[in-house]
């Protein structure tokens, strides 16, 4: 079955059954491998993207639920200033270790900063609790979120 999607501002056609999780559509059908598989059960956040601006776990989101809505993946997240600020803070603080979870972390962090430009530590805890990093980069993720928030406030 053919469906039309809009990914990172680009309209694309995919041939997949409507129950196929968006994760595999992005990775296997469209070759956007920046979005990662970590658990397949909505437990780890490695597969996070934005659908219509909201963070979504693509491993438990069927393709059918994303049709007609704009999708942003890590490959496209740097196209706006919040995404760029987050990426820059991540680099400045050397957040990544293996880096595998970081696409999902970045997508969650961008969503957080869009919703609350002045996040408290509690905000960070609740926004990021769904993202596992087995390498243990949590302290730097927290610091990078605060840094990006500051950057965004000082250079609006």
């Amino acid at each position: 079955m053919q469906s039309e999607l809009s990914v990172n501002g680009v309209p694309v056609k995919v041939e997949a059954t409507p129950d196929t999780p968006l994760l595999w559509v992005l990775r296997d059908h469209l070759g956007l491998t920046g979005t990662k598989f970590g658990c397949g059960m909505g437990l780890c956040g490695a597969c996070n993207v934005h659908v219509a601006g909201q963070p979504v776990r693509t491993c438990v989101t069927p393709l059918s639920a994303a049709i007609g809505k704009p999708i942003t993946t890590v490959e496209g997240v740097g196209r706006d200033r919040v995404g760029r600020a987050v990426q820059e803070a991540w680099l400045a603080l050397g957040v990544a270790q293996c880096g595998y979870c970081q696409a999902g972390q970045i997508m969650s962090a961008v969503a957080l900063l869009r919703a609350s430009p002045h996040p408290t530590d509690q905000d960070v805890d609740s926004a990021m609790a769904g993202n596992i990093c087995r390498c243990g980069t949590y302290p730097r993720i927290r610091a990078a979120i605060h840094r990006a928030a500051e950057q965004l406030r000082s250079a609006p």
């Binding site: 491998t33 990662k36 598989f37 890590v74 490959e75 740097g78 990544a96």
Partner: peptide, 21 residues
């Protein structure tokens, strides 16, 4: 010295074993 892979990682370009096509 910044990580040689950092830029690829934050942009979703870094290629892991699972990403081979």
């Amino acid at each position: 010295t910044r990580s040689v892979d950092g830029g690829d990682i934050v942009a979703g370009r870094a290629a892991y074993g699972i990403d081979t096509r």
